[in-house]
Amino acid sequence: MNFIEVQKVFKFFQQDRVLMPVLKEISFKVHEGEFIALVGPSGCGKSTLLRLLTGLVLPTEGSVLYKGKSLTSVNLDSAMVFQSFALFPWLTVMGNVEVGLEARGLSEEMRHKRAAEFIDKVGLDGFEEAYPRELSGGMKQRVGLARALAVEPKLLCMDEPFSALDPLTSLALREEVLMMWEDHTMAVNTIIMVTHMIEEAVLMADRVLVLSPRPGTFLADIKIDLPRPRDKKDVRVNEISDQIFSLMAR
C-alpha cells in the first residue's frame, strides 16, 4: 500500500461561468519518509495540488488515496505551513500553537506541554507570550511550523514556506528545517513542499516533481540522490537545476 497515491486527478475551477482547467491528469505516488518538492511556473496549480493532497480541495475527477483510502474531506493526519504564515493575530505564540491541539480535544495541561515542546524544537522558547504582530517574518514562520508540527501529523505540507521572507532569513530557516528533518526532531518524516525556486527544491528534496504552466500537467519526476548537506556550488546541483529549468522553459 502506498502512503499517498494521486490517480489521474483533474481539477477545474468555476470562473465567470466558465470552467477553467487548473490541473490535468496528474498521477504520482508518495512514499513514507520522502521529502518531495513541487515546482512549476507561477499559476501552474502547484498550490492547488498541495491542497488536493491534504483534502482541503477535492479533485473534480480522479482521486487522491491516503493509505489506500480515497480522501473525501480534510486529512487530519496532514498539517500545512503557509506562505503568508496565516497566524491568528489575536492569539499569542502559545495560543497559536495550541489551537490545533484544542481541536483534537487534548486537555489543557496536555496541550500546554505539547505546544511548549514544539515551540522549543523550532527555537521559539522565550516567545510564548508574544503576539504575532511583535514577531519578524522568520519568527512568524517558525510559529507556523510549530503549529503544524504540534498536531504530530504524518504528512507535512509547506506552501512556499520561505518565499515571503528576506533572503538571509529564508536561508536560515531553510537550513533549520533541513536540520530538524535530518535528525528526526520533527516527528514527521514525509514532507511535500511547493516552491517556485528551483535551486531551493534541488537543495532540499529527495524528489522534484515538475509541473507545466496552466493547466498544470505532469512534466517530470526527478530523483535527487545527492548526499546531504548539499552545497549550492556543487556541479551536480547546478546540472539538475538546469535540467528542470529547461523542462519548464519548453
Partner: peptide, 15 residues
C-alpha cells in the same frame, strides 16, 4: 536586526 538574519548571514558565509 533579527536573529534569523544574523543566522542567515552565518549560513551564507559558510556556503
Amino acid at each position: 536586526v533579527t536573529a534569523s538574519k544574523v543566522i542567515g548571514l552565518l549560513e551564507f558565509l559558510n556556503d
